[in-house]
């Protein structure tokens, strides 16, 4: 189908884009790569009075590694650009599995994070890496910890006058390794369950662990029950299996025609085991 009519703006600078958002607020939608927004507009699931196309703001593109091991990813960086940049190998492997090449050529990191589809892969990866989301508005810049960013289905801490300009990931602990494992719905390619884990051993014990889960709840979340069960353990197969039992602790688990809550919960435990084992190098 064809989207309903909208007014179109293509600001030439971030400042101009922010001014347009201040003026129009929730009546305007930001267009980056368009691979979340355009399908919704075309199906007429969503509509908008006006579009502010920020897709050409080069200042919001790029993968910037810091000297201290941190990594900043500009909001308009496409998946393909992320794959070509200085990104951790396990993240690249995960991103290669998102959508298809045409989607990765257009879809952006900031767009996916801001859209916050409850089955999107990047939120789980971001939660496992930690860090913060950088948001700009006409009145200034603020940062929101990634742990506090995803609030519900398609709902985040972004205000209607703000643009997600980048995501900053801190240096990961010494020896940390990560992994992302998922099972997807084969027709749509969206994750039924996706689990990202970053782990580091210290003196033979699990000294650092962050686990992000997507597809299971109304928003991506940190599986803190898994993290605390694993913390200080030897990271062995039994510890992994016991910790994975906590994969959906405290969550209202999604249920739909592709996977009911019981199946999703069972798969969340299985995929958590796989992600933990892979992050621990097994």
């Amino acid at each position: 189908m064809i989207p309903a009519a909208f007014a179109y703006h293509r600001p030439q600078s971030l400042g101009d884009a922010l001014a347009l958002l201040s003026e129009h607020g929730a009546a305007a939608k930001l267009l980056a790569g368009g691979h979340s927004l355009l399908p919704l507009l075309r199906l007429r699931v969503a509509s908008t009075e006006r579009i502010v196309d920020i897709g050409r703001l080069g200042e919001l593109k790029g993968v910037r590694p810091g000297a201290d091991g941190s990594l900043e990813i500009g909001g308009l960086t496409t998946y393909s650009e992320l794959l070509a940049g200085a990104t951790m190998p396990w993240v690249k492997e995960a991103v290669e599995g998102i959508g298809d090449v045409q989607v990765r050529n257009r879809g952006t990191v900031g767009g996916a994070i801001a859209h916050a589809d409850p089955a999107s892969d990047l939120p789980a990866i971001a939660l496992a890496l930690g860090g913060e989301i950088v948001l700009q508005s006409s009145s200034g810049t603020r940062t929101v910890p990634v742990d506090e960013f995803f609030l519900g289905p398609f709902e985040t801490a972004i205000r209607s006058d703000e643009i997600l300009t980048s995501i900053r990931f801190p240096a990961q602990p010494e020896g940390a390794t990560g992994a992302y494992r998922r099972i997807d719905q084969p027709a749509s390619g969206y994750s039924l369950v996706g689990v990202a884990a970053v782990a580091a051993m210290a003196d033979g014990r699990v000294g650092h662990l962050r686990v992000g889960v997507t597809g299971v709840g109304e928003a991506a979340y940190r599986a803190r029950g898994v993290e605390s069960a694993m913390g200080g353990s030897d990271g062995g197969t039994e510890a992994v299996a016991a910790a994975a039992e906590h994969a959906v602790d405290g969550m209202e688990v999604n249920s739909d025609i592709h996977a009911d809550a019981a199946y999703r919960s069972a798969m969340a435990r299985v995929i958590t085991i796989r992600a933990l084992e892979a992050a621990l190098g097994r």
């Binding site: 393909s80 045409q102 989607v103 050529n105």
Partner: peptide
Amino acid sequence: GACTVTMDGRAVKSCTVLAVQ
């Protein structure tokens, strides 16, 4: 993917790109 074209050398689905883009 039947609508795939290349745009500045990279494959895109032309049903998911606005002409203005």
